[in-house]
Amino acid sequence: MDQSFKIEDVEIDGVPVVSASGEIDVATAPPLRDRLQALTSSGKSTVVVDLLGVTFLDSTALGVLVGALKRCREAGGDLPLVIAEPRILKVFEITGLTGVFPIFESVREAVGSVK
């Protein structure tokens, strides 16, 4: 597992924000999935996922985010993403997911969109 991978979560203005950093791959995606599942299971229908510190992201990570998005939307919420790194955005573009997720360049914008 990439030692630099970390997940932290905070609440900003009542909105849960999960911040991931490092490489999200087949080894590190499960802790992210578990954290998002825990939040949605506890009744949070909208969660902001901050990917500003992410340096690598594969299809396993995309699958985790798509699964979380489905759960949030089924509960009447959403899963806004925060992405500024072009390389990470490129993965969403080539898979057609930029049209599926609301994507923002800052956590402040993402939180503001759901308040």
Binding site: S59, L62, I94, T95
Partner: peptide
């Protein structure tokens, strides 16, 4: 499934 589809799309683009 979905994961395979995403993998193939990424591969095809890169």
């Amino acid at each position: 499934g979905e994961a395979d589809d995403l993998s193939l799309r990424i591969l095809g683009a890169l």
